[in-house]
């Protein structure tokens, strides 16, 4: 499916979402409440079937946190980007999609570890790289207190 066709299908399926052509891929922004339902539909609808989540990124924006999902359909070979923003920046939380794509379970752990975004209903939300009690280094206001190399 080409990007234009994909936009048509997605617009029909998700009337509430904001859908636009990005620099390369079709980008769809949804509200945080509808994320989980959207994820299930994206994967299970036969004509789009986005079954391969190849990248999950957390971004610290000035007012809130964003999570960006890069999805591909192995059958149809089209790619799209799903975007969502949390309501709060200090104590952000969002529904997990790890029950839809298993790989999200570990990517979400990484996002939780580095950005402190809490994923609701995640079965194993622990730190992945850093110790408990460490700050969230990818946040823009992170202060590196244990600076090993002094400038």
């Amino acid at each position: 499916m080409t990007n234009d066709e994909l936009i048509l299908v997605l617009t029909g399926k998700f009337p509430d979402a904001i859908i636009a052509q990005g620099s390369q891929y079709v980008e769809m922004t949804v509200k945080a409440e509808s994320l989980h339902e959207t994820a299930i539909q994206l994967k299970q609808t036969g004509e789009i079937s986005f079954d391969y989540l190849f990248c999950l990124t957390g971004v610290d924006y000035p007012k809130n946190m964003g999570i960006i999902y890069h999805l591909e359909s192995v059958k149809h070979r089209h790619v799209m980007v799903l975007k969502v923003r949390t309501a709060d920046r200090i104590n952000p939380s969002i529904d997990t999609v790890s029950d839809v794509w298993i790989t999200a379970k570990y990517h979400e752990r990484e996002v939780y570890d580095l950005l402190g975004i809490h994923f609701n209903n995640h079965t194993d939300l622990r730190r992945l790289f850093l110790e408990d009690g460490w700050g969230f280094p990818l946040r823009k206001d992170y202060v590196d207190e244990v600076r090993i190399v002094e400038r």
């Binding site: 079954d51 391969y52 989540l53 190849f54 192995v74 794509w101 298993i102 790989t103």
Partner: peptide
């Protein structure tokens, strides 16, 4: 199915 689900490439 597992390979796709886990993103094993």
């Amino acid at each position: 199915e597992e390979a796709i689900d886990f993103g094993v490439t």
